[in-house]
Design a protein around this nucleic acid. Sequence first.
DNA 1: TTAATAGTGTCTTTCAGACAATATTAT
DNA 2: ATAATATTGTCTGAAAGACACTATTAA
Lengths: 242, 242
Amino acid sequence: MDSYDPGDFPPFAVTVDVVLLTIRDGRLHVLVIERGAAPYAGKWALPGGFVRDETLDAAALHELAEETGLQPGRGPLARVHLEQLGTFGDPDRDPRMRVVSVAYLALAPDLPDPAPGTDAAAARWSPLPVTGLAFDHDTILAAGLDRARSKLEYTPLATAFVPEEFTISELRAVYAAVWGEDLHAGNFHRKVLSVPGFVEGTGETTRRGGERGGPRAKLYRAGDATLLHPALLRPDREEAVR
Amino acid sequence: MDSYDPGDFPPFAVTVDVVLLTIRDGRLHVLVIERGAAPYAGKWALPGGFVRDETLDAAALHELAEETGLQPGRGPLARVHLEQLGTFGDPDRDPRMRVVSVAYLALAPDLPDPAPGTDAAAARWSPLPVTGLAFDHDTILAAGLDRARSKLEYTPLATAFVPEEFTISELRAVYAAVWGEDLHAGNFHRKVLSVPGFVEGTGETTRRGGERGGPRAKLYRAGDATLLHPALLRPDREEAVR
DNA sequence: TTAATAGTGTCTTTCAGACAATATTAT
DNA sequence: ATAATATTGTCTGAAAGACACTATTAA
């Protein structure tokens, strides 16, 4: 088949769609935009757009910046984690024509409220769960959540959700928000510190204790590990095994 | 951006490329084809082709059948494991035009020698490592190997490399071939049997012992687990952590 | 003073990995 | 008989998770 000229084949449109997750007020949120035009006008969807003369990663970053109204690679977007999630290309996923969408997962610390992009009617952070999105975006979002939940186990990705300097409790709150269950504070604390390269101390502490009392916590920043070993496994997942 | 008509954007060609791995003679092999036409005529490449009016998964399966000369979903191909690996779309990855390739990873038990497809000059099983492939196929292959190595740890995917009924030693040989290091026979044996749902006994044994002696081994088939818990971690991966 | 939180100590159970031992079979 | 292999046993150290405890701070 490779002897055919690619131009002989019916053309596809290629888009990127981004599942951008953040944590606000202790809950996991996803960035969604309200569609301003058909198809699915008035429905909410994941931010996305057509790929131009650029790499797929660049297209995703580009889309992220446009929908958040932030500078790519600078300020709050400088520390965004971005990874390819999967590609969705069922023949009928877009009623207009054959569109293949490369989905990305992005994780960010608490970002400002989004400024709607050029043709979205509105953009906002929506707390999970979220359903009823346009196209196959419910499926894409579910894939993003699965990926994020899973990667918290064996990578230091949780640090992508917190500011550059953070406390162990803040990190624990990330796990609680993403996994949807509280973790034992004492065991979590000891565990995080025991994994080589997960976090490194700054020598500083917070200025104040907690809202309702408690000592001032030590501050940490992300360490140099790319994999957590041993991993931080989710409690009791018997259900998930079969 | 979604208000634009997709047809207004420069068209892409979309292909699937498949990293099909199998184990022959205790070594990991990948299916490669020799390109019969430009670009890269005469070079080896991963099997692949343009996506027609079908889902991406169907296109991959289709391509697999074509390049192996086997019936899709029947016979040896019935038990093939197929999963999406990632999408590669750098603007210059194909000199002819903008081509986005959705890569798939496929794992199969020992298959017959391939029959070259319609326009490949040749097709063969090539023992790893393999380098010098056309396009960005070295990168795609590396991604496939990473994925396979990693998934053997926490999924029962190793069973995709063995016949329907197999011995624990055959399963251990899969791990050895994919990870490139031998595992302790006794510990592996006990470990595999201790993971719920990984394998289930058939009550049968092999007809003969090993080539050079030894008792007849019990036969097993794949169990109903989709995740291994606890996982079978690769020995000593300190290097990989940072 | 009271309550909340950070951080540490201890114990039990599970698991990984090293090593040994026994039984079975091809040659 | 000999060597190879399957399978099981035992031990040690790492790690997970339950629980308790102390110290510090906001209100």
